[in-house]
Amino acid sequence: MSDATPRVSLGKLFRVFGLIGLTSFGGGIVAYLRRALVDKEKWLDEDGFMAALEIAQTLPGLNSTNMSVIVGRKLRGPAGALVATLGMILPGAVIVTALGFTYVALRHDPKVAVVLTGVAAAAVGLLVQVTLKIGWKQLIRPQDLLFVVVVFVLVGIFHVSLLVTLIAVAPLAIWVHRPRTEKEAA
């Protein structure tokens, strides 16, 4: 059932991903993707979606564009990956550009400046909430918390380059979770 990949036209692929790119306000793009790809178009079943998401989250890059590449490739090969990714990025890029032009023109207006102060303050609250929501499991497990703190201090406080930090810390963190023969506690 999950191997029966439907034939999808490139135009349709662009429209479906473009609609997600245009309507997914406020983050949480994964939920929009699931609704469109699994529930509405039925291009993927639940397992196929979760498998794609797993890859998208592990590889570098944004989850939303990685999902576009993976699902586009699965449905229509290289052209599909390109079309789906462009559909995902373009609407937001156009809107952010329009917002940006307005911002550059108006940011010295004191009335606009106070709005931006409030907007930025709220964005920090959103980022903190998202971090705690996806990270609480890591924050309560002492072994993981150690890595959280080490990375925070290296990158956030001492500005050690991200590349150096990843090369130093990632192999150790993966080794700690290395596969073992006996069943380990989760």
Binding site: F152, A173, R178
Partner: peptide, 24 residues
Amino acid sequence: WRDAVQRGMAPIVIGLMLAGCYAL
């Protein structure tokens, strides 16, 4: 090893996100 990569990277990502909260 796929599982090990995911579980190992999770706390690193959270550390980076917290550093992002701090930077902003």
